[in-house]
Every structure is written in C-alpha cells, then in structure tokens.
C-alpha cells in the first residue's frame, strides 16, 4: 500500500478495536475517506459506528492495524493534539458536551483552548452561532434551552474551532424537522466550502444527500456506494436493522401494485416520475 496518503483524510488499515479485550467492535476494517468527501455511515445500534467516529478523533486508538487521520497515525501521541484540534466531533447527546452556563462561553470553550486571541475569538463565536441559526443568543443561558437548541450550540462550539473534518454522531437525532433541515443545510454548505464530512445517522432521508454511503454491521463494511446504489436495497437494509427512505418504500409499494416507476430515493424524484406517468395517460 502506498505510504503517501495526502489525498486521504481518514484511513483505517486492517484496524481492529475491542473495549474489553474479548469481543472486537470491528476487526480488519479498511475504510478510506478522501479529502472533501461527504460520507454517511449507516448501521444499527451496536454496529460500531460511534466507535469508528471516536477513532477518527483519536479519542480511541486501534488495538490492531492502524488509523491515519490527515496522514498521521492516531496511535502516536505526538499527533493527538493536531488531530483533535482539526477533527471536530459532535456527539449524540448535547447535554454531555455543553460545558458552560452562557452560550457564548460554551461556544468559545474550544477555540479558546486552541489559543485563539480576541477579537478573532469573538468573531468565530458570532459566525458559528449564525451558521447554526442562533445569532444573537450569545448571552442566553444553556440550561434553559431545549434539547434541539442545545445540540445546535454544541455544533457551533465545534465549528468555532474551524476543523478540517466534521464528524457528526447522530447529531440530528434530537432536532425537529425544521431544525434537522436547517442543520442539513449547514452541513451541505460546509461540504461545498470544502469541509470533509463524516455523518452518522439513522435518518435515511439525510443519507440521501451524502456523496457516499457506507453501511456497517458488526464492525464490517456491508455496503459501500452512492446513495442511489445503496439506499434502494430494501431487503438487505432491513436485515441490518435499517430501513429505506420513504420515497423508496413508496416506490416499492407502487411497483407491487403494477405502477411502473423506478425505485427513487428522494420524494422529488418520485414525484416527477409519477407526474410524468400521469401526463402520458
């Protein structure tokens, strides 16, 4: 294997990890994320998704094989600081990651620890809050926020660190449809600006907007491809505790009823197909 991995931001090489030294969460895992890619990791509870996310942030290091982030070995303590300050990880539960009582202090916590001086620090906090739709909330208290608002504060705290790769570990799980759409817009925008994104989610509609979808089961890559290739495989996905997007379910139900539509992964695509069918009648 070529040693130079300048184009590859994340590389798992025959990696294996076990929490208890007995049962491996994943083993012989090979996974590569090129710079600038928007990757979505899918898998049931316990499939190893979150453990993989923690490896990208060097919070965990593999027991076997190696994980390289930005071409640097995560097991080498010399690189830990560099990797962690450039890979931002947003966890599942915002209550676990808010550290301050005022929103501005919480968002500033990360960049302040990186030694960012004022006034840049202040600017970053303002910008990050604007990106998640919480502009003007600087002096609000974090405890009085709803779950979804807390999650957006947590994400702003990561964005303020200006990371090169953003890892979202079910970060949208607690948001309402509007909040989720808003956050997905932020994620897509960050991706367009060149950010590498690894998103873990259970929402198939979100997976549909990624460039690449990887489905995990028992620490193994079971499917890997574009959303259009992966998300339509209903039977396989169901076996892996997942479901297919609504548009895909409806396409399949329609085909069972003799309606000649391709299996679509987005509502818009299916809508167009149906309208085309209807206009030829």
């Amino acid at each position: 294997m070529a040693k130079d991995s300048s184009n590859s931001f994340v590389r798992f090489r025959d990696a294996g990890f076990s929490y208890d030294g007995k049962r491996f969460v994943f083993q012989n895992l090979n996974l590569e994320v090129p710079q600038g890619q928007f990757l979505c990791l899918l898998g049931g509870n316990g499939s190893g998704k979150s453990t993989i996310a923690k490896h990208i942030d060097a919070l965990l290091v593999p027991d076997e094989g190696a994980v390289e982030v930005f071409g640097k070995d995560t097991a080498n303590p010399e690189f830990t600081y560099f990797i962690r300050s450039n890979a931002g990880l947003v966890f599942q539960n915002p209550d676990d990651q808010l550290v301050a009582s005022l929103i501005e202090n919480d968002v500033a916590f990360g960049p302040e620890n990186l030694g960012i001086p004022n006034p840049e620090l202040r600017q970053r906090v303002t910008d990050a809050l604007a990106e998640v739709g919480l502009q003007g909330f600087e002096e609000h208290e974090t405890f009085a926020l709803s779950g979804g608002q807390k999650q957006r504060v947590a994400i702003a705290g990561i964005l303020a660190m200006d990371p090169a790769i953003l890892i979202l570990d079910e970060a949208t799980a607690m948001l309402d449809p509007r909040g989720r759409k808003g956050l997905m817009r932020v994620v897509r925008q960050l991706h367009q600006e060149g950010m590498t994104i690894v998103m873990i989610t259970h929402f198939m509609e979100e997976a549909a907007s990624a460039q690449r979808v990887v489905v995990l089961d028992e620490g193994q890559v079971r499917m890997d491809g574009t959303p259009q290739e992966v998300l339509v495989r209903a039977d396989e996905l169901q076996q892996l505790s997942l479901e297919v997007p609504f548009a895909c379910r409806l396409s399949l139900l329609l085909r069972q009823r003799g309606v000649n539509v391709p299996v679509c992964i987005t509502d818009d695509a299916l809508k167009e197909e149906l309208c085309a069918l209807s206009s030829t009648m």
Binding site: G44, Q92, A173, M174, Q238, L242
Partner: peptide
C-alpha cells in the same frame, strides 16, 4: 418524552 430518539430504525 421522545422515547425512540437515537434508536436505529428496527429498535425504534
């Protein structure tokens, strides 16, 4: 309160 949040589709 949001009993199924964070569970995978089948567990949900």
């Amino acid at each position: 309160d949001e009993p199924a949040a964070g569970l995978d589709p089948r567990s949900r």
